[in-house]
Amino acid sequence: MPVRKEASGRRSVQAEVEVPGSPEEVWEAIATGPGISSWFVPSEVEEREGGTTVSHFGPGSSMDAVAKITTWDPPRRFAAESPEAMGPGSATVGTEWIVEAQSGGTCVVRVVHSWFASTDDWDNQFEGHAHGWAAFFRILRLYLSHFRGRPSVAFQLMGAAPGPHAAAWDALVGPLGLAGAAEGQRVSTSAGAPPLAGVAERVGPSEFPELLLRLEEPAPGIAHLFALPMGGQIFLPIRVYLYGDQARDAAARAEPSWQAWMAERFPGPQAG
């Protein structure tokens, strides 16, 4: 997903996915706080032009992504701008979301990041964003296919391990009993690990380890495990999304046991 460069200095990168649902149903998932929180990160949206969007990528306000909505045209398109989105002194980044209805009861969702720059300083990071969207869009498609509109509760866990990449991944999925999972296979965690059971919807290649599960236990939901090299370490996030009337109680039981299990095996992200 290379960066597109125009003579005016505008640069952009985009990602897209085809998902089930009407434009109104898809809009609910990508343009409202509860909808976005059901497959992405905890978010709030003021649903109007001039409103604010906030996405919480971690604890504390320093991990928040804040943008101002510049276009609001439900259920087709909205756009927002984030000043210095990549850090102090960086360009303002515009993000556009587009929903296009297709035949057969599906829609294409497209996200476009654009900015103006005279150098390539930020290109690699934005190409990384596009790859990141591909992973989140797999979660979005799974959510809309199986859990659309249900109440949702999510939690995220984070560990970190030294490289190499493959060894860090094995240190996570091995003790969980999830090593060697195949797509379409029903899997469950080992004795001594927090209970997690479901069907493996995606198993990433060895160079980009990833496991996407459609859960039956601890409640209907989705789990996403992956390994991300950053700052000389391998970060090991686990995202769990639970759905339905029992989701909140199930999350309240599951999250503490997961936190304890991760803390015992991984020191957590360390300063680079």
Rank of each mutant, 00 (worst) to 15 (best):
A134F: 07
L157R: 14
S206Y: 09
V112R: 03
S43R: 09
R148A: 15
E81P: 02
W115R: 00
H113D: 03
G58I: 13
A130R: 03
T92D: 13
V54W: 06
T71I: 12
A223G: 06
D245H: 09
A219P: 00
S103E: 14
E264K: 15
Q125M: 13
T189C: 07
L176E: 02
A252L: 15
S62V: 11
I222E: 00
A191K: 13
L196T: 05
D123V: 05
H224A: 02
W133L: 03
A80G: 07
L157E: 06
I234G: 02
V3K: 01
E84K: 05
G104E: 10
F155D: 04
R202L: 10
S8L: 11
Q233Y: 10
L196V: 04
I139Y: 00
A29L: 03
L242E: 02
F226M: 12
M86R: 07
A117V: 04
V26W: 03
H224W: 03
L140E: 01
A263D: 14
A167I: 09
S22T: 15
S8Y: 10
D121Y: 06
Y241R: 07
V13H: 00
I139P: 04
A271T: 13
W27I: 04
G163D: 06
F116Y: 02
H224E: 00
V54P: 03
W258E: 00
V17I: 11
A65H: 11
M158W: 08
V45E: 04
I139H: 10
H131M: 12
Q125E: 13
D245K: 11
